[in-house]
Amino acid sequence: MVDVAGAVEAVALIAATGGASGLGEDAVRGVVARIRERVRGVFGGDVRSVDALDGAVADPGDARRLRELAAALAWYAERDEEFAVEVVGWAQQYGPAAGVVQNIHAGRDAYTAGRDMTVQQRPETDPASE
């Protein structure tokens, strides 16, 4: 049996966000559409799993929805070796390359969270005028 633990999380993220690494924008849309179509086909008439896919696509920022989709993918991958191989292949080919490290050095307020960053500029104060 293929180890799919990490792969299902990567594929859930790809399917939910519509993002895949290493491809141009048009290619990403095609790949993501094929992955979603294949996953929907594997889920078949399983309303709960289809709802997990639809919910994650509708709100990819919701960690609970991503976990539900990953759990559904894992459940089917454990029972279908061919699907498990596909999931691992998608994760290896299109998943995020590696973690991103942000080192921030700012002379102003900088708030970071995940992939979002907000920088608020404060008016410069002249130490001599204080």
Rank of each mutant, 00 (worst) to 15 (best):
T17C: 11
V87T: 02
P127Y: 08
R40V: 05
V101C: 00
A10I: 04
E78M: 09
L69K: 02
R38Y: 08
A7T: 07
A128L: 14
R36E: 11
G22C: 13
A58F: 02
A16T: 06
S49R: 04
A91T: 07
I14G: 02
G89I: 04
V87I: 15
D26Q: 14
Y76I: 05
A72L: 03
D126A: 12
H105I: 14
A98C: 07
G6A: 07
M1C: 10
D126L: 09
A77Q: 04
P123K: 04
A7H: 04
A12Q: 01
A56F: 00
A16K: 01
G55E: 01
I35D: 07
E86H: 10
R64G: 09
D116L: 09
A16L: 08
R108P: 00
A7N: 05
Y94E: 07
V8N: 00
R38F: 08
R29I: 06
A20G: 12
T17W: 06
A98N: 08
V4Q: 02
A16W: 01
W75Y: 13
V2I: 15
G107L: 10
A74V: 01
V50M: 06
A63G: 09
S129D: 12
E124K: 08
I14K: 01
A128R: 11
M117R: 08
A52H: 01
S129E: 11
V39P: 03
V28R: 14
A10V: 09
E68Q: 13
V42I: 15
R65D: 04
E78L: 12
E124F: 10
Y76A: 04
A91F: 03
S49K: 06
R65Y: 03
E124S: 11
Y111V: 15
S21E: 15
G41H: 10
P96R: 13
G107M: 09
I104P: 05
R40H: 07
V88E: 08
R65Q: 12
A84N: 07
V87D: 02
I14N: 02
T17G: 11
A97C: 04
E37W: 01
L53V: 08
V28F: 06
A77C: 11
E82A: 15
G55F: 01
V87E: 02
G18T: 09
T125L: 14
R64Q: 06
R38G: 05
A15D: 03
A106V: 14
Q121N: 12
A52Q: 01
E130F: 11
I35N: 06
D59I: 04
G55Q: 02
D59K: 08
E37I: 05
G107T: 11
A16G: 09
Q102E: 14
A71W: 02
A98Y: 06
A72P: 02
A16H: 03
A71S: 14
V4R: 01
V119S: 13
Q120S: 11
G107N: 11
V11S: 01
R48Q: 13
R34Q: 13
